[in-house]
Computed example of a mutant assay.
Amino acid sequence: MTTATTFVPTVAEATKAGFFPIRHEVEIVDNRELTDGVYRLTFRDEYIADHAKPAQFVDVYSNDRTRLMPRPFGVAEVNGDEVSLMFAVVGKGTAEFAELKPGDTIRVMGPLGNSFKTKEPANYVLVAGGLGVPPLVRAAQCIADAGNNAKSTAVFGYRNMHFGDDYVGRYADKVYSIDESEGNVITLLDRIEGELRDDELKPVILSCGPLPMMKAVAEWAAKRGIETQLSLEQRMGCGYGTCVLCTVDTTEGRLKVCSDGPVFTRERLGWGE
């Protein structure tokens, strides 16, 4: 009697064969605290670096095998074969990730989900709150790298420390930010509305952040007839459409944020109509 063996392809083998790589081990190259409880984790992975589009996310798995479910983090930045994520410590899993050091390894899978559409000429207004910032940094990077007739304007809201401004400032044409002591992203949108209207490029809003914020952004945009794409933050289980934990109500019925999204238009969500 022989024992069956399971063939587990490497990332390179999976890519060459033309199918999506399974979860695999990557090496940590940097991990730093940006502000109290918010970290920027960087690992080396050629496949994710080559394929990650703005708003796509990566499942990160705990090294403690009793914690079965991964944590989904939006890709924040890509440099060569290095991929950066930003996350907040909210429980034991993320606390574990905060302790990772260069040379350590972690298992990941991705990139997952759909992405923002940024190919048409436009002034992409990147509206983010809190940990909605990372996908918008990646959006600004991709818009700048594309080199077409498009630009980006970052509009970021924070609880206190403006941890994402320096990163998005590498790519965005303009950066506006605010914290709770001054107002919110709607405060900023009201301030720059005239500037957006006077620009020769039409504004297109890309947004990610807390649900109340995004609904307010969708309503603001709907009143002005501005195209809006929203990347939803939702509690997930698997991250690829099997567990049906991350459903959201849409005009087409209930859809999965991980596989049908995370990006939806405001019309598809029925927000601000």
Rank of each mutant, 00 (worst) to 15 (best):
residue 113 G to V: 10
residue 126 L to F: 07
residue 213 M to T: 03
residue 111 P to N: 10
residue 239 G to R: 01
residue 163 F to P: 01
residue 215 K to M: 14
residue 240 Y to S: 14
residue 202 K to E: 09
residue 136 L to S: 04
residue 232 L to A: 04
residue 204 V to N: 03
residue 209 G to M: 08
residue 112 L to Q: 12
residue 140 A to V: 06
residue 242 T to A: 10
residue 174 K to C: 15
residue 194 G to H: 11
residue 212 P to T: 04
residue 209 G to Q: 04
residue 231 S to Q: 12
residue 179 D to M: 01
residue 197 R to E: 15
residue 145 D to S: 12
residue 129 G to F: 00
residue 198 D to H: 12
residue 117 K to C: 11
residue 238 C to L: 05
residue 117 K to H: 11
residue 148 N to P: 04
residue 129 G to T: 09
residue 125 V to S: 01
residue 163 F to K: 02
residue 193 E to N: 14
residue 194 G to P: 09
residue 162 H to C: 01
residue 189 L to V: 10
residue 219 E to K: 15
residue 113 G to L: 09
residue 206 L to K: 08
residue 114 N to H: 12
residue 218 A to H: 00
residue 226 I to F: 03
residue 142 C to I: 15
residue 137 V to C: 06
residue 113 G to K: 05
residue 188 L to M: 13
residue 202 K to S: 11
residue 224 R to I: 08
residue 170 R to W: 10
residue 235 R to Y: 13
residue 203 P to F: 02
residue 124 Y to S: 12
residue 108 V to H: 02
residue 115 S to D: 15
residue 168 V to T: 04
residue 179 D to T: 02
residue 185 V to D: 00
residue 220 W to M: 07
residue 240 Y to Q: 11
residue 134 P to A: 10
residue 212 P to L: 03
residue 183 G to P: 07
residue 127 V to N: 00
residue 198 D to E: 15
residue 158 Y to P: 00
residue 125 V to K: 00
residue 232 L to T: 05
residue 187 T to F: 03
residue 218 A to S: 11
residue 169 G to T: 11
residue 130 G to N: 02
